[in-house]
Simulated scan of single mutants.
Amino acid sequence: MSDMSEAPRTSDGGFASVRPDHNFDLLSDVSLRISVEVGSTSMRLADLLSLGEGSVIELDRQANDALDIFANGTLIAKGEIVNMDGRYGVRISEVVSAGRRFAGLERRS
């Protein structure tokens, strides 16, 4: 469909709406990068350069805090680490509402 003249029309001449489930079908093959953030910190370059094997970096989270789950850099959920056949996994404990999705980005900047 190159312009609106090719869009489907209703019997009264208006444009027919596309059903939402069709929109999701169009996007179902799109790949997203999922990442999980355990925590973060800020440090001076001199401190970073002095790190060596065995150094510990203290993060801004408590050990029992939920982890942030991101899709293409956007906060979408909170979760916890699980062990799946010797590999790490994340169990989703909370799906973040659309209004709260960008609140986590302030902490990351």
Rank of each mutant, 00 (worst) to 15 (best):
M1Y: 13
S2N: 09
S2M: 05
S2D: 13
D3G: 02
S5D: 13
S5A: 06
A7Q: 05
D12S: 10
G13E: 01
V18Q: 06
V18E: 11
P20N: 05
H22K: 12
H22L: 12
N23P: 01
L26Q: 13
V30H: 04
I34G: 05
E37K: 14
E37A: 13
E37R: 14
V38Y: 15
S40N: 15
S40G: 15
S42A: 08
S42R: 14
R44A: 12
L48R: 10
L51D: 11
L51G: 09
G54D: 12
V56M: 14
V56W: 08
I57E: 06
E58Y: 07
L59V: 05
D60Y: 05
D60T: 00
R61T: 15
Q62P: 05
A63C: 03
A63M: 02
F70W: 07
A71K: 04
A71G: 01
A71T: 00
G73S: 11
T74I: 05
K78T: 00
G79E: 05
V82D: 03
N83R: 11
N83P: 03
M84H: 12
D85A: 09
Y88G: 10
Y88P: 05
I92L: 13
E94K: 08
V96S: 03
V96E: 04
A98F: 06
A98G: 07
G99N: 14
R100L: 15
R100K: 15
R101L: 00
F102N: 08
F102H: 07
G104Y: 02
L105F: 09
L105V: 09
E106Q: 11
R108S: 03
